[in-house]
Design a binder for these strands. Sequence first.
DNA 1: AAATAATCGAACTAATAGTACAATTATAAT
DNA 2: ATTATAATTGTACTATTAGTTCGATTATTT
Lengths: 210, 210
Amino acid sequence: MKGSKKENLIQFNKQNILLTARKLFVEKGVYQTTMDDIAREANYSKSTIYVYFKSKDEIYNHIVYENMNQLKQGLEEGIQSSSNFEDCYYTICNTLVSFQEKYPLYFESILGEISIDQESFEKMPILRDIYMEGEEINKIIENFLQNAIDNNYIRQDIEVMPTVLALWASICGIISFASKKEVYLQADLKCNKQKFLENGFGLILQSIIR
Amino acid sequence: MKGSKKENLIQFNKQNILLTARKLFVEKGVYQTTMDDIAREANYSKSTIYVYFKSKDEIYNHIVYENMNQLKQGLEEGIQSSSNFEDCYYTICNTLVSFQEKYPLYFESILGEISIDQESFEKMPILRDIYMEGEEINKIIENFLQNAIDNNYIRQDIEVMPTVLALWASICGIISFASKKEVYLQADLKCNKQKFLENGFGLILQSIIR
DNA sequence: AAATAATCGAACTAATAGTACAATTATAAT
DNA sequence: ATTATAATTGTACTATTAGTTCGATTATTT
């Protein structure tokens, strides 16, 4: 079944639609992009769009999934190419920053407005993929932290999993804030985004370091 | 002008509408609540609703403002009734948690999806009030941190303002995460929300403590 | 009682997600 | 080459809802 000519065509069409949606979502915003827009721009009729995707939401979530996958790869590569603990920590942070800058629309979604109940999974299977991709990203950070503990780079008294998630939540919180309040930081605080981020990441690092 | 019988009546009607909207937003969700719903439930005609508020968004933002005001008061009271630095820190955290639990719909908005440009302020004056209320909340946290530095409770090498905001962003990030992923924390991690929060707040505290 | 202001109601526009389905076109099988 | 099958299209449709319009009605003030 897979790899057949037919299956390939289906995937090709899906990708076409997703690419167009991606482009339009960035250009005009998700809400302002209509299904008619996507159909016109991708050169399909609206009916055909609905053959490939059940709803606009499903299109959106497919893009979220692709982005998560990309983020996961970015994290893996970044971690592998890092030489020491601190380097690795900042690489993870910066990968997240780059991701937020590249896909500001999707960053929040990736942080987890995603439901994890069976019913949603059945209604929209891509949600399960998103969930699983999230799990894998967690594991990556978990490994990083466990490694740091084993090698005595950081405090020995921490519980790995809750700390992984708290770290993740804090770092994402800081990135999200920096992005939303960039103008404010610059104007009222004379503190540019980059400096704010470095300061924030440094602070978080202090919380786990030996 | 203010305090006149007429002005009072206007305020009374506005409050009526806001209270109804508040109730319906919680009951059915913001998006699922229509202007017709609000009009019917509040016993005004739709036309009258539009006399008092220019749009649904304006209604929403008025509620956000009221909530921010409440949060500010909560923070002020909490801080005043705290006896020492750590107590105060956790009081601030818990005030935020309570707030998120009481108004989950509005928590994210309060963290700052609010624009701060002149144009938005002119189109919808309540946005300026929201902005200013945010500034005051910042000041409260700033005072708390400055105090702690002065009294040598925490590290002396900290730049106050960026740290205030990084703290705020981290704590809110953790709260937001805990709320969105409560089911996941419980099911997959056997870690209840309360424990996760305590752990997370403790971590953040480590980052500023002496 | 007349003038003014607030409110109402009901019909309207415009936008858009999603559907229905018959007509058309491309692809595959015989 | 012809037929059967599948994919695609176009068009018109439903349903929902934010926001508008405006003449009629009701309440308040003078």
